[in-house]
Each structure stands twice: as C-alpha cells, then as structure tokens.
C-alpha cells in the first residue's frame, strides 16, 4: 500500500497507470447507453443540433443581431457549456454511481473521475460535429481556431479538479448534488451563452467580468470564432487551476480514504 505522503502523486499517476480501465469502461458506458439505437450517440448530435439551430435563429431575431454572427457564437458557446455543465453536475454523483466497484476493490478515486470525464468528452466529441459544420458554413475557420486546443486542455484540467472535489464532498453530503444542479442552471442565464456580452449596458458588465464560468466558456469559444482570447483569460484560467489544485489536493488528502465508508 502506498504511503500517505505519496497519495496525491499516486492519484495523478493512477490516471496513466489505470488508463486501460477508465478508457474502456468510459467507452462502454456510452456504448451501453445507446446499445439498441441505430444511430447511437449521434442522437445527441441531432438533438443538440436541432436545439442550437432553432434557438439560434429565434434569438438572433430577438437580439437583432445577424444570423452569421449569432448562430456560430451560440453553437460554440452552447456546446462547450453543455459539456462543462453536464460534467460538473454529474461529477457530484460519480462515486455514488460507481459504488459497486468502490465498495469491492481499491481503485484510486481519480480513475473513476477520469471515467466520467472521458464519458462526457466522448459526448462532447459528438456534439463538436455541430460546431464544425456551422463554422464551415459561416467560414469561421482560421489559424486562430487552433488556440482552442490548449484552451480546452486547461478547461479539462480544471474540470478534473472540480470533479474530484465535488465528487468527494457530494458523497458525504448528498444535498450538495441538488444545490450544484440548481446553481448550474442559474449560471447558464448569468453567463453570456444565449446572449452576447455587448447587450449588457455599461453598469452591468460586472456580471461577466467576475463570472468564472464566462472566462471558462470564452477561452474556448473565442478562438473557435476566430478571435484570440485575451491574455487575461489565460491568466484567469491558470489562477482557477491553481486554486482548484490546492483545494482538490486538500480534500483528497483529508477525505479521499473515507469515500468508501460514505457510500
């Protein structure tokens, strides 16, 4: 058994050591969900696609912005948001969901978190088709688009850390799962996804300026739309990751070994 001092490092290296496990099981989770359907997970692509287009057309009218501007903006933002929000909401019940395994064998917690994250990443991959199609239609691709890749990796790291924290805390306090779900729903309306930042009149821009979720969505969305994210966004992301790491390590060290008792 690993020494307590090495435990945190053990959790990180477990992601590599147990790659086989989370990769295959996460993949099978998706396979299982869509087992008897013909187009499988592309149902998600379809439903998100229809939703994005319908709402895109409608709200571009409401906000009186051109469809060329609004549809790619909304499609990119909504798809990224869908990934982030689903992962955060589901991270709360990760350990509860994989209870049967946790109660039977010793697998580092980060492996279960990776399984869940990989799960949602696969679904995001299917949704990403929509972004590609819409960006192609409106000719938004440029070299700038590539910046979305490092940005997305930062988002993944942050999501992983948040998921570790929420997973552990929510296993102990089941109510927090519900609080997070409500909170995430609310955040959607306070984050410029369905509306654009410029519609906020001067005095209200703080809603976005101090909204971490805006920073997280924007750093991926803006390169997709051909604009380099400002340096401050990168700085924000690194700061979030730093804070989340400290918190995740603390919670993992203090309570990680208790999770199996709480299930």
């Amino acid at each position: 058994m690993s020494e307590p001092e090495n435990k945190t490092i053990g959790e990180i290296s477990a992601i590599v050591r147990y790659f086989n496990m989370w990769f295959l099981l996460g993949w099978y989770d998706i396979k299982q969900r869509y087992r008897r359907s013909i187009i499988g997970p592309f149902w998600i692509t379809l439903s998100t696609g229809v939703m994005v287009c319908a709402i895109g057309f409608m709200f571009s009218n409401i906000f009186k912005s051109s469809i060329q501007e609004f549809l790619p903006y909304f499609a990119a933002g909504q798809t990224v948001w869908l990934f982030i929000s689903t992962q955060i909401t589901e991270s709360c019940s990760t350990f509860v969901q994989y209870k049967s395994i946790i109660k039977q064998m010793s697998v580092p917690l980060s492996v279960h978190v990776m399984r869940k994250l990989w799960n949602n990443l696969i679904l995001f991959g299917h949704n990403f088709l929509i972004i590609i199609i819409i960006l192609l239609i409106y000719n938004k691709f440029s070299w700038m688009t590539l910046l979305a890749i490092p940005a997305f990796i930062l988002v993944l790291i942050l999501l992983f850390l948040i998921s570790v924290m929420l997973g552990i805390v929510c296993t102990r306090f089941r109510d927090i799962t519900q609080i997070v779900a409500v909170f995430i729903q609310l955040i959607f309306f306070f984050t410029p996804i369905l509306w654009m930042r410029k519609v906020l009149s001067g005095g209200h821009s703080w809603v976005t300026d101090f909204n971490p979720f805006y920073h997280i969505v924007e750093i991926v969305r803006s390169p997709l739309l051909g604009v380099a994210p400002s340096w401050i966004l990168w700085l924000y992301m690194l700061a979030y990751i730093a804070v989340a790491s400290v918190m995740a390590i603390f919670i993992l060290k203090k309570f990680g070994h208790r999770v199996s008792y709480w299930l």
């Binding site: 058994m1 049967s100 395994i101 946790i102 039977q104 064998m105 010793s106 208790r258 199996s260 008792y261």
Partner: peptide, 26 residues
Amino acid sequence: AGVYAPTDGSLLVKGSVASLLDLSLG
C-alpha cells in the same frame, strides 16, 4: 482488498490481490 482504510492502527498488504468477493463485478 484495500476498500476500507484503517480508522486506526495499521494494515500492510504486500503483493497483488485477487478478490473473489464479487465475481461479476462490473
């Protein structure tokens, strides 16, 4: 099997563990 960490005291398990507690796990 490493599921429960000791509340107190210590437990050392050296070697790979095959747990036949739940055969159809997963």
